[in-house]
Every structure is written in structure tokens, then in C-alpha cells.
Design a protein around this nucleic acid. Sequence first.
DNA 1: ATAAAAGTTTAGGTTAGTCTAAAAAAATTA
DNA 2: TAATTTTTTTAGACTAACCTAAACTTTTAT
Lengths: 218, 218
Amino acid sequence: MLSLTEENYLKTIYRLSDGGAKAVLTNEIADSMNTKAASVTDMVKKLSVKDLISYEPYYGVKITRLGKNEALMVIRKHRLWETFLVDKLKFSWDEVHDVAEQLEHIQSPLLIEKLDEFLGYPTADPHGHPIPDKNGKIQILKQVPLSEIALNKKAFVRSVKDGSSSFLQYLSKIGIYIGATITILERIEFDGSLEIVIDNKKKVFISRDVSENLLVTE
Amino acid sequence: MLSLTEENYLKTIYRLSDGGAKAVLTNEIADSMNTKAASVTDMVKKLSVKDLISYEPYYGVKITRLGKNEALMVIRKHRLWETFLVDKLKFSWDEVHDVAEQLEHIQSPLLIEKLDEFLGYPTADPHGHPIPDKNGKIQILKQVPLSEIALNKKAFVRSVKDGSSSFLQYLSKIGIYIGATITILERIEFDGSLEIVIDNKKKVFISRDVSENLLVTE
DNA sequence: ATAAAAGTTTAGGTTAGTCTAAAAAAATTA
DNA sequence: TAATTTTTTTAGACTAACCTAAACTTTTAT
């Protein structure tokens, strides 16, 4: 069984490597975890012996299939707990992270099974991030333009079709960001513009063009 | 803030001292925690410096007001989590202890506040043990062993003295649970065993040992 | 009352995880 | 290509929590 620290390293390496795609450097890990490169080198050797990562001195680390699975299980637990905190205990988005960071290390497969069931087998956490299933499978959600979403349905902003900086600046100005939740309140027939609510808080109008360039998942 | 280990020591000392009433010896702590006397001595010095216990070499330790409060907060968390596991996640009695043992160390006052509210401010956990409130106050219930209850008097099962999972499994097998109503129909002189009726429905025989380990209120 | 037994503490060592400072390797620049 | 800078690793130390073995108190028994 992995220690809390080992789990945190794996989770970080998984994230920094874009899910295992690329190698990660010692200093990246150190910066990301607020620790020192020397400490990372030590841990990386340890994880390497356990075959959770492969490590070539001076060239960085790659996560193995085994390590990837462990990382996914920690992420699964984190996201299930976040869902619990928001949906059941009425935490707000910004309060959940630190607590979930602790809860994700509780060791009990039965607990996670039952929590998953209690929450109704959610596929995404409150930030819209997908929750890996018990086999580590992540449901790839089809991204569609916001314009195709039905009224009053929650949608999570995933990406933009047109990545021009003026568009991005406009989005951030009105409070839209990757991960934001959007619900369409009304479609204006006249010009296809939408009245939407962002993060259950802020109501704004956006044009049809904007809604066709925002890619979301349900 | 206390470490996980410090919390566990305090909890054990609180329990062994009957809630702070009497002093506890090094070896008692060591036995109870499956550790060695030398390790206990080390920790006891540490807790003493933090004014959580008072420690006189060779004469044992007494828990201070401060230490008692810390212990009560850990117990509060443990029992709230056990209640959550049984009431919400449908764990059975005997499955909850190890998980609650981990969950009790999560640090977040807000989490415990919200969990308490979510559970409807329970005053006792699924084993019938009282849950300290956020100020550390415990509601005192006058509990007596079932063996001391008169014939044909209704009694409510509140807790068990011996919480071993084999005992809990046995109880649930014969249909006894916290909150059950029990009436003694007959005392068998020969061995002190009892014929009882559970919830005015099911008649069973239980040994003297069992009746002495079942704590009830009238 | 004193010797043996029981219990407790001290001394010294281990492991996991961390750190700083110095050495070594790789990358960059002149 | 050689020198300098950056990055990484090694070396050596620290802390928390644990251990064993030896020394020291206290208790018990003869």
C-alpha cells in the first residue's frame, strides 16, 4: 500500500505529464509540490523501485501503467469527495479543495464503492472534471457548442473553438472560464442570443456567435 | 495542531482514564495501542510539554482539561463519521470502525459542523455511544446492563460494552440493534441466561454474558 | 528486610520524509 | 569549443515516531 506522500507524488506526476503522455522533470515536480528538487530525487527513486514510474537520472520520469492506475484511484476519490461535499454537505466550490485533499487518502475500497452509490454514480465533480470509474476509466464527454444545449441544463465549459485572445479576454471579462458551469435561461428568437447564468450566480447575455464558439459538456 | 499520532495517544489516554478521572500507566497505554513502553514514554513527554497531559515519571499520566477537550473532539468526529457510514452509506455496525478510525483525523471544523447538520445533530452513534457536541459536552444517559432489568419491563438497547465485531455480528444475527426494545420474559436460574422478546415480536434466548454486555435504558 | 520480579526510563539505532550545501551533468552562450 | 549557467544528484543532517537492550525505580514475595 502506498503512503500518503507517495500518493501525492503520483497524482502530481500524473497531472504534470498530461495523464502519462510525457516525461516530467524533477524541478517541475518540486515547484508544483512546494518542495525541493533533492527531495523529489529521493522519492522518485523510491517510486521507481516500486515500478510506479520509470526514472532516468537527469532525464525526468515517466509514469507506468501501474502508477497511472494508482493516480487515477486517488483522483477518483478526490472527485467523489468533492461531489459529496458540494452536493450533500452544501459546501461551496471554493471551500472543498483542501478537505478533499485530505479525504482522498482514506484507505477503504468499500467506502468509495458506497460513496459512489450514495452520490448516484456521478461522472463529473462539481468543477466539471470527469470522475474515473473503479477501473480507472474516464468517460470522455463529447464536447458540443453551448448553442446546442437545452434550456436549464447544466453545462461545463471545456474549451473554445476560436482561441483568439480578444475572445478569451471577452470571456474572462464576463466571468466565463474553463470549468465554469453554465445554464441557459432563455433563447432569444430574434437573433439567437442567449441569456445564461454562470456558476449559478451571474446572469449575462451572450450572442449566438459566442455560444457557437464555446465548447461544453453536459 | 496535533499530529495523527498525538491524537491517537490522547484518545487512548482519555479512554483508559475513564474520561480523565484516574491516572494511566505507561504499560497500559503501550498494550492498548500495540506499541512499546519506551515509545509511550517518548510521546508522553511530548504531550506533557504541550500541556495536554501531566506526567510524573514512574507514576503515570493524567489528562489535562486541554487534552481532554482534544480527545473529545476526536471522539466527536469518530462518532459522527460512524453515524454517517451507517445511516447514509448503509454500512453495517461491524464494518465502520476501521474507516472511522481514519476519518476522525481529517482536519476541518467546517466539515464537522456541516456533517453534524447533515446527520440531523445526532446525540448517539450507531453503537449507542454518546456524541460530544462542539463544546465537548456529552449527554449522559443512565445505562445499565440488560441483566439488571426486571422481568417484563421494557428496555431500550443503547450501547454495547464489548464492541468486538464478533459480538456485533452475533447481535445483528439474532435481531438486536441500537434502539431495539427488549423485554425479559424469564430468567433461567441454572446459568443466568435470559429469554427475551425483541420489539414485541421475536423471542430468543441469550446467555448471561450477552446480557451483561448489552447496555440499556428503561 | 532484602532479593527477585515487574514496570519504566534512558541510550542508542532505524525509517520516511524533509532540508541545505556541494558536486556533477546538461544546456546555453560567447 | 570552451566557459558559464542551469538543473539535477549526492552527501550529510534533521525530525517524528518507532524499536531493542540496558539501566534504573518500584513493588512483591520470601
